[in-house]
């Protein structure tokens, strides 16, 4: 495996296109691009355009009014806060799980990866219901929680738990195939050279996986902010207090406030796009760094 791949395809796809060995005939290339773009238009662009068209149907004034309303602002804050807690938790887990699964062979690996995938297949409503069964006033820990006046569901901790559950697999599953593809030769070489575990991780593994990791974080974050079903069960829907953005969207929609509902939804889409802008900036700086290093040598 070639060592640290800092380059990125957005800029470096020409390294494939200029190489006769990794290049397809022009018609194949055009066909594939056409298929991808058609699929893109049909499945991604059109829904997004619909959201913005609906959001702006009553004009920009209504659009911004919908976003600056106190209920909307507190929903935005809450959503960001929940994601800010849930994503780092899953980040640490994802790295640990990927390290164990991708770098080592052990019995029960198949079982472990399947368990990591499992939260996806749990219907979000059931995911929420689990926490009601555990922490609801008639749940396993309900009486104890009530006695100690400590709230989990219908409060912030419940929202975080439900969000963590539905986004558990993202970062781990993003990293596992990548780290498997990279093998363990780089790390083993570092061991031979006498590096400690943390040194290996920081200086060898992390640079190798950083784009995969970033993708995992972006996906996890997008999903954490967009999650509806599970959160809806444990939220209690208290306006201005436990309503996240997706829940707020639903309430607005149910009140026939379509323009406002889509305005908040479009903001969720924009937040996701914002994370991708951040990604591009990080990439760009990485490349600047790289070319600076190359000039120095």
């Amino acid at each position: 495996m070639s060592g640290a791949v800092v380059s990125h395809w957005v800029v470096h796809s020409h390294r494939f296109e200029t190489n006769a060995a990794t290049r397809e005939p022009a018609w194949v290339k055009r066909l594939l691009i056409a298929i991808a773009l058609a699929f893109f238009a049909l499945f991604l662009l059109l829904p997004l355009a619909t959201v913005f068209a609906e959001a702006l149907r009553r004009g920009w004034v209504v659009y911004f009014a919908a976003l600056t309303e106190p209920d909307a602002r507190s929903a935005i804050k809450l959503t960001l806060l929940v994601a800010a807690i849930a994503v780092p938790l899953n980040l640490v887990f994802g790295v640990a799980a990927a390290w164990a699964v991708a770098k080592f062979n052990f019995r029960g690996k198949q079982l472990l990866t399947t368990l990591i995938d499992l939260p996806f297949s749990v219907s979000p409503v059931v995911a929420g219901l689990m926490y009601v069964l555990l922490f609801g006033s008639q749940g396993w820990f309900g009486a104890w929680l009530l006695q100690n006046d400590f709230k989990i569901i219908f409060a912030m901790p419940g929202l975080v738990l439900a969000t963590v559950f539905v986004t558990v697999p993202f970062i781990a599953r993003e990293l596992i195939p990548l780290m498997e593809a990279q093998g363990r030769e780089d790390e083993e070489a570092a061991v031979v050279l006498g590096a400690s575990g943390w040194q290996i991780f920081w200086h060898v593994t992390l640079p190798n996986i950083k784009w995969g990791l970033l993708y995992g974080v972006i996906l996890c974050n997008a999903r954490a902010m967009g999650e509806f079903g599970a959160v809806s069960v444990v939220s209690g829907h208290i306006r201005g207090r436990t309503n996240t953005m997706p829940l707020y969207v639903e309430i607005l929609y149910n009140e026939y406030n379509f323009a406002a509902a889509f305005a908040v939804a479009s903001l969720l889409a924009l937040l996701a796009l914002l994370t991708l802008v951040v990604k591009s900036v990080v990439e760009w700086r990485g490349q600047q760094q790289l070319s600076a290093d190359q000039e120095a040598t």
Partner: peptide, 21 residues
């Protein structure tokens, strides 16, 4: 770049919004 960025859209949209759209 735009295409690349929008691939994640299905995660970001609340599922109900996606359904309505």
């Amino acid at each position: 770049r735009v295409v690349d960025a929008l691939v994640d859209l299905p995660f970001a949209l609340p599922t109900a919004v996606a359904g309505i759209a």
